[in-house]
Structures are given as C-alpha cells and as structure tokens.
Nucleic acid binder design. Structure first.
Length: 530
DNA sequence: CCATCTCAATGGGGTATGGC
DNA sequence: GCCATACCCCATTGAGATGG
C-alpha cells in the first residue's frame, strides 16, 4: 500500500490520499460487484474484509465505496440510464445470488441451523430487530444465530473486546469455517447474506457483529448472562444502549427462540425503506458525551486525518468504532453551524488529559468544557449544552462577543464572565438535580464530584474576575499583568496562547479597552452577585 | 396515542488536493 | 489536465424520548 500519511505520519495533513495498486483496485472492484456497494453498516463486514485483504484502512475502503457509487451514478446519468446502473448492481447481484442461493447454503450452514436453532423459521433476534421487517430472512437467522450463540459462549468477551472491530474470525460461529477472503468463492455465511439480497443496501440487515451498538447490546447480553439478573433500568453509563433497548433485550432474553417467528416472505426483498434495527443507533451515555466533549475541546473537531489520533483515542476510550466518533463529530459540527457557533479549528496530535477518568475531577484539572474557555471557539462548546438555557444565554451575549476583537483582554474578560455565568447555571442546575436524586448511584457521585470541582473553580474565577475588573476600570496595567500572571494554570495557558496568536498575526500587545462593555459586564456581575 | 424533538446514521454534492 | 481520493457540508431518515 502506498499511503502517504503512513510514510510520513508526522507531516500528516489533510488530503494525503492513498494510491491504490492494481491489485488493490482489483480487490475493491471485486468486493463492489459482490455487494460492497454502500457505506452503511450493512456493508461494514464486507468493507472490513476488503480492508483486511487490501491492507487498506477501513475508512479508505469506505470512502472508495462512496466515490465509486458517485462515479457509477454520474456515468449512469450521462448514459441516460438513471439509476439503472446502480440498480443493475443490485439486481445482478441479487438475481445471481438468488440463483446460487441454494448452492451457497451449504450443508454445514444447514447443519448449524438445524443444530443451533431448531425449527427453521425461528431465530434469536430481538423482537425489535425483526420489527424492521428486514431481519427475518432465514439466512439472517443463520448469521445472527451464530453471532448470538457465539457471544453467549464467549465468556471472555467484555467491553474490552469491542475496542476494535472484531474480526469475523472472532465472532465466527464455530460450526462455520469461513475462508478468507470470502468473495472469490467458498461457502461463507457472508457470501450467503450478500448474494441472496436483491437490494443489498439500506434495508439489508447487516451481520450484526459489525454494529457498534449491537456490540454494546451483545455486551449487555453477556452481562446478563454471566451475572445475576439485573434490572434493566438506568445503567452505569458503560453501556451505549438506551434503557428502552435494554428492556427490549431483557424482554427478548425471556423469549425462547421458538417464540419468535420470522416472516418467511422476507419483506426486505421488496422494501426500499431505510428502516434499521433498533440496535443500529448508538446511544451515548452522559459520560460518553462528556468524554467526547472533552476531546472536542481538545481539537477533535474534524473528521480528517488531522484528528485521526484523537478520534482513535476517543474510540478506544469509549470502546466504539472510530466511525461512530466521526459521526458524532459530524453531527456536532452541524449543530454548531445551525446555532451559528464557530467550529473550533482541529488540532493535530494526540490528546493529553491530566487524568482520563471522568470520575476523578482534581482541583488542578481543567473543568470539562471550561478548560479552554478563553479560546474563542470553546466558548461555543461550553455553552452548547443540551439545555436551552445555556444556548439562550449564548445568544444573549452575541452582541458582547461581536464587539470584541477575539483576542483582546476585553474579550477574555467577556469570556470569563460568560464562563462564570455558565458555571453558575451549571451549578444551579446541578443543585436542582441533586436535590431530586437519591445519592446512591455512580452518576450521582459523578455529579457530586463535578459539582464540588465546579464550585471551587467558580469561586476562583469569580474572585479573579472581580480583581481584574477593578484593575481594568482603574487602568492599572501593572495590576492587570499581575493578575494575568497569577491566572490558574490552564486559563493562563490559553491566555498565553491567545496573546501568542495575536502576536503572530502581527498585532501589538493589546491594552484592555472596551470600557463600556466592561461596565455592562460589571453590572451583570453585580446582578449575579445579588 | 399522537405530535414533536433530538440525534445517530447515511448518501450525495461540492471541492481541494495529489498522483499520473 | 484529468482522475482518484479525501474531506466537508447538507438533507434526509428513522429510532427513541418526551410532553400534552
């Protein structure tokens, strides 16, 4: 493989594209013809296998698939064939698959089905999975049966297993000996699933071991199998499954395979909908989101290679696929744009946290979302909480922000005010929430710790801001400099960074101005004190 | 029960960039 | 210059949550 970013990782920047060898191209084409025709989860396994075979990165293969689709679509448009080109892929694949289905369904699969599943039209899929009307093909049953059976058996599987995409070998049903690669021939389960589907796109149920959320559910299944029965209520935050999903799974737990009957008519053969199984959707816990936001604040704001390390680290920390992280970033970017908040520039290199455990919030440690509050963009991150109050507050302060240069001390003072007020809101909301929660679970402890930390930081910031305001009002530059020198470490760093950026841009060391806005802020401050 | 909202997931368009 | 790759942006879908 000729990947520039691999040859020169240090200089890795955007758009260092791969150049596929003829062999890689051939393999890619082959996989495309065999069903790797979209970027959805339904093709994850194929993409993964293709990536393994071509020794390319998963995302590279995935991107190639997307571009390939576009290329074919544009060609089809030019030929006036419309969507026939793409559908031809489907149909040809599907019809061929239908023709070979009988032969592909090998004796070993049939044997596995009969051994593991009993009646041929029953399966172990969760009811919600079959609700998509797409998961009920007998073939899917074979696949999923194997997965679930394997998972129930895999006592060593836990959260750590999911840190990377599990290879198909790991999840392989013992009864099936898949040959790799499966595309050129051989009787693999995957080939069955792909070739049998006339529309192997959105509506096709993916081999579920590829879905991160499915893996989360599998983890849960493992948990409830290996441990004493748990109430499927509020989780510890380790799982990415929603309560509802857990309940569904728990309910499914009680359903024997014979109780769920699949739809023999296989509606996915006709459906063109994009309906997915419930477990497709990743559910981030509060702690996961908190972690993601920390990475975001550290510059994980781009999907490109610049943030590759951070994305990988975040994926590793949360035990999800990097694609999930990328999707989260993409959606967050969109959210920022919709709200008119400037997206922080991406920062390369690995992310460094003083302490990786979100449960331990030390005094010196930067407050989540606040640590880089003096950076112009992190303000948005800070205020982009999911509650409307903070967002509203951000809008209210737009005017103030617009008046500032972006790197002047006045801007920083403004930011500090906003930070202060937001902290106050957080504290207030936390207090409100705390009063309603029994102090017995992990999340409450987490909130307590965070509250304590926020209180301390709030107190420090408050006194600092007050002193700084006085100095600004008195135009006491010496005092200002003293105060800036005594800034808390993290804030100080950001301050220096801001000044440094300012110097780099050729600007002179700014003096604090904007007294009018400052006095307005002081009034706000007074109001807040009241 | 229904309407509404949030957000993960997905595909497609536009385009910058690098290799040939 | 052309083409392939990579990235960003956007619209859309649909599951789940929530409120009336």
């Amino acid at each position: 493989m000729k990947c520039a970013w691999q040859l020169n990782d240090l200089n890795a920047s955007m758009n260092l594209r791969s150049v596929f060898t003829a062999e890689q191209q051939r393999i890619l084409e082959r996989y495309y013809e065999c069903g790797m025709i979209n970027q959805s989860k339904s093709c994850f396994q194929l993409i993964l296998q293709c990536a393994q075979e071509t020794k390319l990165d998963f995302s590279v293969v995935r991107t190639w698939v997307g571009n390939k689709r576009r290329k074919l679509a544009s060609k089809a448009d030019q030929n006036g064939a419309g969507a026939q080109a793409l559908s031809h892929q489907h149909v040809s694949c599907g019809s061929a698959g239908a023709l070979v289905a009988g032969s592909v369904l090998t004796a070993e699969i049939a044997a596995m089905r009969s051994i593991q599943r009993g009646p041929p039209v029953t399966h172990l899929l969760p009811p919600q999975a079959s609700s998509s009307s797409s998961s009920s093909s007998p073939l899917s049953d074979v696949i999923l049966m194997g997965i679930y059976a394997n998972c129930f058996d895999a006592t060593v599987h836990n959260r750590t297993v999911t840190k990377s995409l599990p290879s198909h070998a790991e999840m392989e049903p013992p009864a099936v000996q898949r040959k790799s690669p499966i595309i050129p021939g051989g009787s693999s389960v995957l080939k069955c699933s792909q070739t049998l589907k006339p529309f192997p796109s959105r509506d096709v149920i993916a081999p579920s071991w590829e879905s991160p959320a499915s893996r989360a559910e599998l983890r849960y299944l493992l948990t409830i199998n290996s441990e004493a029965p748990q109430t499927p209520g509020k989780g510890t935050g380790q799982d990415r499954t929603s309560n509802t999903t857990r309940q569904n799974i728990a309910a499914q737990e009680q359903i024997t395979p014979r109780q769920v009957t699949s739809d023999v008519s296989a509606p996915w053969l006709h459906s063109n909908s994009r309906k997915r199984t419930l477990q497709d959707r990743t559910q981030f816990s509060d702690r996961d989101v908190y972690t993601l936001k920390r990475y975001w604040d550290k510059g994980m704001t781009s999907l490109g290679s610049l943030c590759k390390e951070k994305i990988s680290a975040a994926a590793c920390e949360l035990s999800v696929d990097t694609e999930i992280i990328k999707t989260w970033i993409g959606n967050r970017r969109r959210k920022y744009r919709l709200m008119g908040i400037e997206i922080p520039p991406p920062k390369g290199g690995p992310v460094m946290f003083p302490n990786h455990s979100p449960l331990i919030l030390e005094d010196e440690r930067q407050t989540p979302e606040l640590g880089e509050a003096s950076e112009h963009n992190d303000l948005g991150s800070l205020c982009l909480s999911d509650d409307g109050a903070s967002d509203l507050y951000l809008k209210e302060n737009d005017d103030v922000n617009d008046e500032s240069d972006g790197s002047t001390p006045a801007k920083h003072v403004t930011n500090l005010f906003i930070v202060e007020r937001t902290i106050f809101e957080i504290l207030w909301n936390s207090c409100l929430n705390m009063n309603n929660l029994p102090p017995q679970n992990e999340e409450v402890q987490f909130l307590e710790n965070e509250l304590r930390s926020q209180k301390q930081k709030f107190s420090k910031l408050k006194s600092f801001t007050k002193s700084l305001l006085i100095a600004v009002r008195n135009k006491d530059r010496k005092k200002q400099q003293e105060l800036l020198a005594s800034l808390p470490q993290k804030v100080n760093e950001d301050w220096d960074l801001g000044l440094e950026n300012h110097r780099e841009s050729g600007a002179e060391m700014p003096t604090i101005q904007k007294e009018s806005s400052v006095s307005e802020e002081e009034e706000d401050m007074d109001q807040m004190r009241l």
